[in-house]
Computed example of a mutant assay.
Amino acid sequence: MREAGKVESDGGRPHILLEVDPGHAHVIGIDVGESHVRVELLDLKLSVQASALYSLAPGRHDPETVVEHIVSGVRSVLAESDGRPVLGAGVAMPGNVEYGPDAIIHAEAFGWNEVPLGRILSERLTPLPVHVDNGAMTKGQAELWFGAGRGARNAVIALIGFGVGSSIVVDGKLYRGATSSAGEWGHTCVQVAGRLCRCGSRGCLEAYVGADGVLDRFRAAGGDVDLGGHGVEAALEKLLDDPSETARRVVDETVEFLGAGFADLLNLFNPELIVVSGWAGLMLANRRMDDIVAATRAYSLSQPFQHVKFVPGSLGPDTVAQGAATLVIEHFLSAERLTP
């Protein structure tokens, strides 16, 4: 820690403000996504110092492949380190994470069931401490600490990409629930007996507003989806800018489903702030934020709607790895507070 200024008190000595010294040490953040594994070496203010990126082919999300990419990426960024101490590695995963030393992962999108990722990585990366959490949770914490959520006491940070999730902030802290699965907003039902979701259920929000779900609905409506060599992100961007009647109808429906989903969160949790983040979320927010807010108004109770503000995430579309690094910083700061 280092001094960041002083605040005069009503009497006695002024209060000294402290902040994390970004040059004190490094941390590693790891984003395991649908299409990639991203590993970043960061300072304590989450500025990227070195990075490594590995593509994941469709269907190649087996634990062995993911672990090898993580280990290779950590070794790569450590080789570029300037010799300052590295406090640990944080890993952001899709799905549910059972907290504890084993950090057991349940990720239906990957076909993972009870994979002890924390234990596996701790053994492979020893003596580097490893912390694992859900990607939406880590993204939410990063926005809460360093981004659009700063200062909010009750907020929702939505993460919309291939998958759909959220972080619920209650009284300034992330709400995790009884088994740490709170925030699985993408698997709330918006259409009874609706589209089949990859989780195995039907009518999930993710099946309508997740990137694959939007493109699948466009394809089913007769639209042409050419993934080519540019991938899902480029295809979604092309769809959002497509002036054709079919494209407009699908995007309008997506906005309405998203508004209904936000209304559920608004009615349940009464946040003061909703942050729209994730690469697909930012694509939608940058083009249709006013329409998203209007759709939310149509499906929500009037009183809580009057007191909520919508903003796009401010940390950019590819910051889940930075969010993962907050796990290490949080552990470091907790240890600092406990040190006499």
Rank of each mutant, 00 (worst) to 15 (best):
L159R: 06
G88S: 09
H36E: 07
A57W: 03
G83L: 09
I160G: 05
V66N: 11
V66G: 10
S166D: 03
Y54M: 04
V170E: 00
G29T: 09
G73H: 05
R119Y: 00
E98G: 01
V170K: 04
V27H: 09
M137W: 14
V91I: 15
D82N: 13
A89F: 05
R119W: 00
W112S: 10
L46H: 08
P63E: 06
V97L: 10
Y99H: 12
R119Q: 06
I70G: 05
D62L: 09
A142M: 11
G95M: 08
G95W: 08
G165Y: 07
Q49S: 01
K45R: 14
A148W: 13
A142N: 14
W145P: 01
D62C: 02
N113C: 01
E34R: 15
V74W: 06
L121Y: 01
L46T: 06
S76R: 11
S47Q: 15
G165E: 08
V74C: 12
R60F: 03
H26R: 15
Q49P: 00
A158G: 11
F146Y: 15
G149S: 09
G147Y: 10
D82P: 12
G95R: 03
S122L: 07
P63A: 09
W145Q: 14
S81V: 04
P94Q: 10
G151I: 12
Y54G: 03
S72R: 13
E114T: 01
V86R: 05
G33R: 14
A79H: 10
Q49T: 01
W112N: 10
V156T: 05
G147L: 13
I160K: 06
A107S: 13
I104Q: 00
V77C: 06
M93W: 05
Y99M: 10
V32R: 14
R84S: 09
G149N: 11
V66I: 15
A152G: 09
V66Q: 13
I104P: 00
G59M: 11
V91E: 04
L117P: 03
L42D: 03
G151W: 07
I70V: 15
I105V: 15
V132G: 06
S167V: 02
P116V: 06
E123M: 07
P101Y: 00
V97S: 04
V169G: 01
F162G: 04
H106Y: 13
G163E: 08
H106Q: 08
V32T: 05
D62G: 12
A136S: 15
S35A: 11
G88Y: 05
V71S: 02
S72T: 04
L128D: 08
V130D: 03
G151M: 11
